[in-house]
């Protein structure tokens, strides 16, 4: 089934959060301003990302971008290795002693992250997720945890409007999700974010945390938004407004005054009413 829409309606962080939580496997394609980006995921981990036209191989370019090969070296390799896959090129380069395996892993990883971080600046564009579609096995893929990517992405968020919509109420408080320790271990947090983390408590509203740390409304929203999307914290449900005197159901349409079931009725009576309604609906 479909997973498509426009980035106008979702932030990239939201999409990544979805893919992460649902442990999705497949490829997300985003088109914006004539540019096309592809990101592939395996069981909720980012394994590949690529911007622009498809090519046969990318590795030489990646290594050059990461400063592991000079421009000349990269160009020579690209002309000599026609028809070879990135995996094969990687093996050749390691054998020839030009680069190490960890150079390759780091440069591919860096390139994947650069693409994804660039996507965080896109505010519009059609996206589509193709489940189970993965990059060809000839490409080098690196599994990367999405939590840290999401935190980094939210640091780059500039849009006040998204945050305002997502976190309208600064008087709400937060609590940790289950096992935050395991998640925190994998994430690099800034000093400011750690300060916020240290104050996460259902008794502290976001406003309080912001005041204690001298953060603006925008900054606290941005930090909390990242933590929410990375699954570190959740909003604490606010108690409902005190119940107003219930008006009688069935009163608004002009018909015989009917008596609503007020909450003062005994539990047994309410239960029997609900059960009767259920029986009736089953028989419809």
């Amino acid at each position: 089934m479909a997973l498509k829409g426009n980035l106008r309606d979702f932030s990239t962080t939201q999409l990544l959060n979805l893919i992460n939580l649902a442990r999705k496997t497949g490829t997300l394609t985003i088109q914006s301003n004539g540019e096309v980006a592809n990101m592939s995921f395996q069981e909720g981990k980012l394994i590949y990302a690529h911007l622009g036209a498809e090519r046969e191989n990318y590795l030489a370019q990646f290594l050059h971008n990461a400063g592991k090969l000079s421009k000349e070296q990269a160009d020579i390799i690209e002309t000599r290795v026609q028809g070879k896959s990135d995996k094969q090129i990687g093996r050749l380069l390691i054998q020839a002693g030009h680069v190490t395996q960890s150079d390759i892993i780091q440069s591919v990883r860096q390139n994947i992250l650069n693409v994804v971080y660039k996507l965080f600046t896109w505010v519009e564009g059609l996206f589509r997720f193709e489940a189970n579609q993965l990059p060809p096995p000839t490409l080098i893929t690196i599994p990367i945890d999405l939590e840290s990517v999401i935190m980094e992405g939210s640091r780059r968020l500039q849009e006040w409007e998204i945050l305002q919509e997502e976190l309208p109420d600064l008087d709400v408080s937060l609590r940790f999700t289950e096992r935050p320790d395991a998640r925190l271990r994998n994430i690099n947090l800034t000093v400011e974010e750690w300060k916020v983390i240290s104050l996460i408590d259902p008794r502290n509203s976001m406003r309080k945390i912001a005041q204690a740390n001298n953060l603006s409304d925008f900054e606290i929203r941005r930090i909390i938004y990242g933590m929410l999307q990375a699954g570190l914290v959740t909003l604490v449900q606010q108690p409902a407004k005190p119940r107003q005197q219930p008006i009688q159901a069935g009163e608004s349409p002009r018909r015989k005054r009917a008596k609503a079931a007020p909450p003062t009725e005994s539990l047994a009576t309410r239960r029997s009413m609900v059960e009767r309604i259920m029986d009736r609906i089953r028989g419809l």
Binding site: A2, A22, A240
Partner: peptide
């Protein structure tokens, strides 16, 4: 609506007969 009353509620992921429908579990996360 959650603010109006603490009564239970459910979410109906409607139009599941259409090709472009998002899956209920994806909607849950969003």
């Amino acid at each position: 609506f959650e603010g109006y009353a603490s009564t239970p509620y459910v979410v109906a992921a409607n139009k599941q007969d259409m090709e472009d429908a998002w899956e209920p579990e994806d909607l849950r996360i969003i």
